[in-house]
Design a protein around this nucleic acid. Structure first.
Lengths: 94, 94
DNA sequence: TTATTTTGGTTTATATTGTAAACCTATTTA
DNA sequence: TAAATAGGTTTACAATATAAACCAAAATAA
């Protein structure tokens, strides 16, 4: 049984990635809305995905007000494909 | 975004359930082999699945040697279906 | 015969995760 | 000018997963 990438096998991180896979970019506020996560949790999970190079995070000041924009990397996209393949191998017949 | 049943969204428990879904019954030794889990970990996760009524566990003595046989319940089967549906909703387009 | 290992587990302890609560700075709004 | 809101980060705690230690019975080796 192939391993399920632990970085992706987490509800919130999977939700984040599944959004970013379908969109050019998304900011903190949007991700928070969509996932209904708390800001703290979201912040931490974004850090982890970013540290793994699955996403790129661009933090800037939009007129003295912070703006955090995220997009998926090629590495992240590839990790998602592999994860989905692994999942399928668990769930054949369902 | 629908919640992913936390009881199923765990590598080992998902592996166990994905085996039990396709088989009439399986014993501890077989599950241990297939999942490559440690006995302790397997024991605990079986307890959790059993407590949730996702599987039924039958412990007996086979000539003074323990035998633990598991099979999935209807509730477990249904939980798996829902879980897979929820997952799909995350992964549309992959 | 009596150690030693193996089988089939369970219990206990620990490390890792996930999550929320508290906090911070800057800006609106009352 | 006090209170609330926006956009986050940090810290602290609770839950999980996992491994290590242990146990009883049987098989194997010395």
């Amino acid at each position: 049984m192939t391993e399920l990438d632990p970085l992706l096998h987490s509800q919130l991180r999977l939700a984040i990635m599944s959004i970013l896979v379908n969109v050019d970019e998304a900011d903190f506020v949007y991700l928070k809305q969509k996932t209904e996560a708390t800001a703290g949790n979201l912040s931490i999970q974004l850090d982890k995905l970013s540290a793994a190079n699955y996403i790129a995070v661009n933090k800037s000041q939009e007129g003295s007000r912070p703006r955090t924009i995220c997009h998926i990397t090629e590495e992240g996209r590839s990790a998602m494909s592999q994860y989905v393949e692994a999942l399928r191998s668990y769930l054949t017949g369902l």
